[in-house]
Amino acid sequence: MTRKSRTTFASLLVVAALLAAGCTTRSWTEETDTYRPLGPTEQRIENRGIADLWLKAAGPREEDGFQITERLHTDQDGHVSISLLPAALQVLAYGHEVVLEFRRMDDDALVHTSRINAESALTVLREWQVQVRLGAKTKLRPAEIRLLDRLIDDLGDKPTLEMLTEIRPAVSTRMEWE
C-alpha cells in the first residue's frame, strides 16, 4: 500500500466516522412532591362518594343450590345498582324473605344488607311490569329464568301470575360472563 492510498483510506474513514458519529439526546420530566404555596389553605368538609370500590352482593343459598351473587363496581359517585327481580322471584318461589349482603371484595367485610320481603317483592314485580309495558328488556341467569318459569307454572295467585306472565317475554338469558 502506497503512502497516497493510505492517506485516501484514512480520509475515507474520517469522513465516514464524522457522518456516522454524533450525539443522541433524550429528555424526560420528573414529577416531584415539592410544592410552593401561593396562598392560604382553604378547608371544607364534604360527603364524597367512594369510587372504584368492588362489592359482592349475595343472597341466601337455597337447598337446591339457587343463590343470587353479583359483583358490583362503584362509579365516580360511589353508586352501584342491582336488579331486584331475581331477589323478588326468590322470595316468591321459596316463601321467605331474602337478605342481600353487600361485602367489600378486598377484605370480605360486610358493609350493607338489604331485606326483600313478600310485600317489597310484589312492589318490585309491579315496577318491572310497568317498565316492561314501556318497552324495557331485562336479562336473567338461566337458574333465575327457570325459577320464573316454575313460578308461572305453579303460582296460584292470579294478580302475581299476570305480572310474571307479562314480564316473561321481556326476559332474555344472561351469559355467565355478563
Binding site: 439526546t25 433524550r26 429528555s27 424526560w28 420530566t29 420528573e30 414529577e31 416531584t32 415539592t34 410544592y35 410552593r36 404555596p37 401561593l38 396562598g39 392560604p40 389553605t41 382553604e42 378547608q43 371544607r44 368538609i45 364534604e46 360527603n47 364524597r48 362518594g49 367512594i50 370500590l53 362489592l55 358490583l72 362503584t74 359517585d77 360511589g78 353508586h79 352501584v80 345498582s81 342491582i82 336488579s83 331486584l84 327481580l85 323478588a88 342481600l100 353487600f102 358493609v111 350493607h112 338489604s114 318490585v124 315496577e127 318491572w128 317498565q131
Partner: peptide, 26 residues
C-alpha cells in the same frame, strides 16, 4: 325494580393554591 346503593364517606378537604416542581432532564 332496582336497588341503588351509594358508598360515601365524610372527608376534610384542604386545598392550598400552589405550584408543583417538575424537573426536566436532558
Amino acid at each position: 325494580g332496582h336497588l341503588h346503593v351509594t358508598a360515601s364517606e365524610q372527608v376534610q378537604v384542604a386545598v392550598t393554591p400552589s405550584e408543583r416542581l417538575y424537573v426536566k432532564h436532558e
